[in-house]
Design a protein around this nucleic acid. Structure first.
Lengths: 231, 231
DNA sequence: GCCTAGGTCCCGTGA
DNA sequence: TCACGGGGCCTAGGC
């Protein structure tokens, strides 16, 4: 990885056009050729960047740019699209390079998949007597997170989200419409289950006869640990 | 901005939990206290990070960690949530710091707002005789991108997207349902306008009687330039 | 302050 | 390969 601190200006063209006026910034060039242009604030998102696969070519600036103070022109061209990032280097303040090697990568926990898994195991959170039919129940427009049956055998389709907003309700609505065309399943009850349900989503869901269920991830995880100790 | 190249391990806890095994990485500490942990590949997104507002506290590692080879423990604590990033530094390979100053920021062109603006100016792209009522026409659930009238005065609601997918059709459907309750507007025709319309979105839109319109940004921009030269 | 909608979204997964 | 859904999404704008 090469890190350059430099006074520079930049221009991106591709899916949109964007320009950066002259200022001092950190330029990170990764082993795969990708380039990030960071300012000293904001967030993890660079001001400007080029994703791999791409190639960096360093040339002399044209006469106009040189007259304006540019010493180098960096052209980062994407390999498959016409996305291009051009950086005019006016002054290099630092320039260092280090071998980092391949990263073993990030290990995550606590995402939607886990929530869905826990709810499938603890299916009676839907109500007493509920039984699991299957997770990722397939339909023509994609899999429903969970299909279950209630205590008297009626089908229940569940959409699981970490945060429940309107999109999730729309998604479940489409599934319900489809599932209700199946005479072996209809009528199918909808349940919108999430750690947090936005007020607008709740209104929309209830307006459509969809039940809302707030999930407590920590207590569900606790129940899982308990059952794994017992069995 | 401080840039440290170091062999390190890290752990994030907050909205989820994530761990990074020991490896050599680049650590960027910005002036606002935010921290980014980058590997030598991937994309612009760090492996792990902490967004501002947050504070970095550097301490000695506990006995266990020290026995495992850790020399320093960096704790980055978010100021408003319980999000926390802990970095165990095992070996510092480089450590540099530079003043960057405030960045003048990015200037963008070509996003959805501009597309909406151009379509409002060139409203007859919807069809001969169409006239603009207004952009961002307000409704109870948010503003419709464009409201227009066709050549014989019937209301037309337009949703503008750069890339048109199912979500956009759902959004327009909600607006149409609401607008059609207004006797001064009903019946309202829907138009889904985008630079690119996904096949599934087109099917859904046409199934609901919504017209699809593919926009050519470059030619619309050309027409704008032409008219600005003429008037 | 919350909430909505867009993004050069990125990025995985599965067809 | 493409399309869809999730994200510690982030970020800008409206109320």
């Amino acid at each position: 990885m090469r890190v350059v601190i430099a006074r520079c200006a930049a221009r991106y063209t591709g899916r949109l056009s964007a320009t950066l006026p002259l200022a001092t910034r950190a330029i990170m060039v990764k082993a795969d050729g990708s380039v990030l242009l960071h300012s000293d604030g904001g967030s993890y998102k660079p001001l400007n960047w080029m994703s791999p696969p791409c190639t960096l070519r360093i040339t002399d600036p044209d006469a106009d740019a040189a007259a304006g103070g540019a010493r180098q022109l960096w052209v980062v061209q994407h390999a498959k699209t016409d996305d291009r990032l051009e950086i005019e280097i006016h002054e290099v303040i630092a320039d260092t390079e280090h071998e980092l090697g391949v990263d073993p990568g990030l290990i995550k926990d606590g995402v939607e998949a886990h929530l869905q898994e826990l709810l499938a195991e603890q299916i009676t959170l839907l109500g007493e007597g509920h039984t699991l039919v299957r997770r990722e129940y397939p339909t023509a427009i994609g899999p429903v997170d969970i299909l279950a049956r209630d205590s008297i055998g009626r089908a229940v389709a569940v959409e699981v989200k970490r945060r429940g907003d309107i999109d999730g309700v729309e998604q479940l609505t489409r599934y319900l419409e489809l599932l209700n065309r199946d005479p072996l399943l209809a009528p199918v009850q909808g349940v919108f289950a999430a750690q947090e349900i936005k007020p607008q989503a709740r209104v929309l869901a209830e307006d459509r006869g969809i039940r809302c269920l707030v999930l407590d991830y920590e207590s569900m995880k606790g129940a899982e640990d308990l059952s794994s100790r017992l069995f």
